[in-house]
């Protein structure tokens, strides 16, 4: 799928940003079928809520994360998880990085 040489310019721009990469890498640590509450994710990443929301919105637009808003009792809670597409995109991104670092690469 990724050719023998993937130019840096072809790395997925949605993921290839410092902050969003951290978000995706963190969410990838969740087990299948699990989702993370927004405050817990924020605490794991040490980002401000506003920052994290912005990045999550971008990832959601790309179809890489799923954001679900529910209630626990009367308290609204937002849960976040990588979508299958997001997981695949992350795997492809990581594979592309490794290909770039292979000896004899670009």
């Amino acid at each position: 799928m990724t050719g023998p040489q993937t130019p840096v310019g072809e790395l997925d721009p949605v993921i290839h940003a410092q902050a969003r990469l951290r978000v995706v890498a963190t969410l990838s640590a969740l087990h299948d079928g699990d989702r993370l509450a927004f405050p817990r994710l924020q605490s794991l990443l040490e980002m401000t809520a506003g920052n994290l929301s912005t990045h999550l919105r971008r990832l959601e637009e790309a179809g890489y994360v799923e954001i679900t808003k529910t209630h626990q009792g009367r308290v609204p809670v937002t849960f976040v998880a990588l979508t299958r597409r997001g997981g695949v995109a992350f795997e492809d991104y990581t594979a592309a990085l490794r290909a770039l670092l292979e000896p004899g690469g670009p």
Partner: peptide
């Protein structure tokens, strides 16, 4: 500041390192 957080990691090696660090940190706490 958040404008620069859209900035790409400096190099592929830095990206991989960032991924590794972040995953380890997440697993350690989760």
């Amino acid at each position: 500041g958040h404008a620069d957080e859209d900035a790409a990691p400096p190099s592929p090696a830095a990206s991989l390192q960032l991924i590794d660090e972040q995953k380890r940190a997440a697993h350690r706490r989760l």
